[in-house]
Amino acid sequence: MMAPAVFLLLVWMLVPLSMTLFFSFKKYLPLRGGDLGWVGFENYIRFVTSSSFWPSVQATLTIVGGVLLITVVLGILLALLLDQPMWGQGVVRILVIAPFFVMPTVSALVWKNMFMDPVNGLLAHLWKFFGFAPYEWLSQASLFSVTLIVSWQWLPFATLILLTAIQSLDREQLEAAEIDGAPALAKFFHIILPHLGQAVTIVILIQTIFLLSIFAEIFVTTQGSFGTKTLTYLIFQRVLESQNVGLGSAGGVYAIILANIVAIFLMRIVGKNLDK
């Protein structure tokens, strides 16, 4: 009785996929003549040879890598902190998780206008208070700013998964290490961190899949300027700004391939970790 479900799933996935493939081999300019016939691999070649292609791959990887690094490192630290017994634990945990429930568009707007605005932003006021010229975050350190905004959104997710992992650590192992004479740092590196290995891989896997397609944060803040044009954003520009559906679809196919390479790569790591 699985058949209908599998069929539905296939249609669900295959229709958009085959339409993307279909358009990628066509010259299709909706506002400038519509369907202008088959062009073979021309769109594919044009997409990668365009001067914006490699910078966009680089921007994508920088943002994904940066966010992963920040969320995993800070996530582990926060999880360690939240694991300590403290007053108001429940409230603190909810506060830490809160950013995850803010829509990406909203959080990007908040960061752009409330924190990073060079005239009215809180950070600008802080800089002025200490006698520095306000920093123009989104133009002078655009890539870093976007990374920061996205990290802020994904930190709760990483923290939550890592916190559950820390809580599943057998307390007697830590006590044994204590008796064996391990200082706090050694306990962290020899006991806690290896225990977290699996959770860290899962965080990396899930986040990578979602981070490859971040869009709203860039659309709202820099609109792809100042070197923040990611692959997703480039495809968006090709389809909607240049009204070139064929070229955009070819980009989409590249993105699918890239995502799959990453996914296979990560599945392997997770598979290996889960075997243990």
């Binding site: 057998d170 006590e175 008796i179 064996d180 391990a182 020899h190 006991i191």
Partner: peptide, 26 residues
């Protein structure tokens, strides 16, 4: 003092050699 726990509390990601040698390494 040295303690042996009911759950053994061995370090799962270390080999037997590393487990036994852990207090010496520390």
């Amino acid at each position: 003092l040295a303690m042996v726990f009911q759950s053994y509390a061995l370090y799962p990601h270390m080999t037997v050699r590393k487990n036994i040698g852990f207090p010496l390494r520390m």
